[in-house]
Simulated scan of single mutants.
Amino acid sequence: MGSDFSAEIKNSIETLSRGGLILYPTDTVWGIGCDATNENAVKKVYELKQREDSKALICLVANDAMLERHVENIPDVAYDILDLATKPTTIIYDNPIGLAKNAIAQDNTMAIRVASDKFCQYLINKFKKPIISTSANLAGQATPRSFDEIGDPILKGVAYIVNLHHDKKNGPPSSIIKLGNDGTVKIIRE
């Protein structure tokens, strides 16, 4: 692990701890991130993206243990889906716990993904809290396919830009699966 990697983790954590927004590479797209437990930070995400806060956000966790701390009841099928998934998979769970109220959807669900890339896992592990991940574009605009396509309002609107993987093209967007506590499974996006 290079010193650059460590420095980027440190700078990102300092920004997140202050309730600031970071622009960071995730396992899918470049994302705007913040502390998923901090309502003021989440509010800044909606303001920057110019979208209503009734639109649910995704949050990233580092591992199953962190997932279990933030969801009241994880259906067994969730582990099967995550084990079998061949690409990043976001699952929408009922009754999230300890996350910012304004990040949670109106039906009291939260979309959560266990991060699969090294940078996100390290960052979230060290931060010890889930991090919001939403695409780095204004509401209604296309998701940027690489760092070069991210618009000025986003670049200027975040407190810190992670200086890694600027040359990396996005991976495919994650699958999104909704799991009800009653055992229902619904594919929202393949």
Rank of each mutant, 00 (worst) to 15 (best):
P96F: 10
E149N: 11
T184Q: 14
I177H: 03
I124W: 02
P88S: 09
F147E: 06
G2W: 00
D152T: 14
K156F: 09
L99G: 01
L84F: 06
V77P: 02
L57Q: 08
K44M: 12
I92L: 10
H165V: 00
C120W: 00
F147H: 10
D107W: 03
I104W: 02
I32W: 00
D107H: 11
G31E: 05
K178T: 05
A105S: 15
A56D: 13
E14G: 01
G157H: 07
L82W: 14
K49P: 11
I32L: 11
N73L: 14
N170M: 14
I177E: 06
K168W: 04
G157M: 09
E14K: 13
K168R: 15
G157V: 05
P173N: 06
N102G: 12
D83G: 12
A41T: 09
S3V: 04
G157A: 09
H70W: 03
K129I: 10
N11M: 06
P88F: 02
M1P: 01
E8C: 06
D4Y: 00
T90D: 11
R113Q: 07
R145D: 12
M110R: 04
I13Y: 03
G98P: 06
R51P: 12
T184V: 07
D53E: 15
L123D: 04
H165K: 13
D64P: 05
H165T: 01
E68C: 02
I91W: 07
F119H: 01
L57S: 07
K129V: 11
A111I: 06
V61L: 07
S133C: 01
D117F: 00
A136N: 04
P88W: 02
N11V: 00
I92V: 15
R113L: 04
D182L: 13
C34K: 07
K43W: 04
P144R: 12
V114P: 01
